[in-house]
Amino acid sequence: MVSRTGPRRSESVRLAVLNAADDLLVEQGFAGTTIEGIATRAGVAKQTIYRWWKSKVDILLDALADDAREALAWREAAGTPGEDLVAHLHRVAGFFEEPAGQVFRALLGHAQLDKEAAAALRAGFLHEQRERDLEGLRVIVRRHSGGEPDEATLVRLTDLLLGPLYYRVLVLGEQAETALLDASAHLVLELAARPAGPA
């Protein structure tokens, strides 16, 4: 059993709970993942979990946020803007195949039926990731075009970049093949280099 005394050990308990929730969701699905099961897998008492989270949805939201900060981070420049953009899209596509991506899918599905869960997902993970995506693409566009994109254009380019990937994976339930990712990156960079038109 994981010790629950002291701030450092409390962090180890938090991570044990998040990892247990990830594992159980992959193994048993959303409906089969319970607070009781998470507590048993993590080696902690249910009371410990309820001190920090009010539901399994809150646990999964925390697990998703932790995992995504690394998995969906935009990396430092390693090639041309186009190469770096395609590489990022491949990381996003790979994320959906990992346990954290399965947690994301499960939470999105549950959010369609639970307004409180939907609000928490949007205010937490989705908001954080949106900010990361906007800033990451801003850097790529700046390198590619030599200019600073206005905010409205950046928002549209971000939607164009990620929309096809999310649609293929989350709506059609298929993998996003390389040709789709390459085409999305190419289109976004082509549009980013064009002079801004009238509002």
Rank of each mutant, 00 (worst) to 15 (best):
V13S: 13
D150G: 06
D150R: 11
T158F: 03
P164G: 12
I35E: 05
G32L: 03
D23K: 11
R14P: 00
L89D: 10
V92A: 13
P195D: 07
K56F: 04
T153Q: 10
H186V: 11
K115S: 14
L72S: 08
A16S: 11
D22C: 06
A65D: 15
V13D: 01
S12Y: 06
F104D: 04
A31W: 03
A117G: 04
G173W: 10
A183R: 15
K115C: 02
E135S: 09
L121K: 03
G163V: 07
L187V: 12
A39N: 13
E27P: 07
K54W: 06
E116V: 10
A152D: 13
S3P: 13
L107N: 05
I38R: 09
S184P: 13
V155S: 07
R41K: 14
L187W: 07
R105A: 08
A77K: 14
T80V: 03
A183D: 15
R143S: 08
V139I: 12
R8E: 15
V92D: 08
L180P: 10
A120Q: 14
K56R: 15
D150E: 11
G173N: 09
V13H: 02
A20R: 02
G79C: 05
T158C: 14
A93C: 05
Q112M: 08
P164R: 11
D133L: 03
T48V: 10
L157H: 07
T178W: 03
E116C: 00
G136L: 08
G173Q: 11
E76Y: 04
L180F: 10
D133A: 11
A106V: 00
F125S: 09
E27T: 10
E70D: 14
R14L: 09
K56E: 11
R105S: 10
L170A: 01
L160I: 06
L154A: 03
L89A: 01
T5C: 00
R138K: 12
P7Q: 09
Y167S: 09
S10L: 15
S12I: 01
R122E: 14
A196Y: 00
A39T: 09
T48H: 12
E83Y: 05
T153S: 13
H88S: 06
V13T: 14
V171S: 04
R4K: 14
P81K: 05
L107V: 05
E151H: 11
T40R: 15
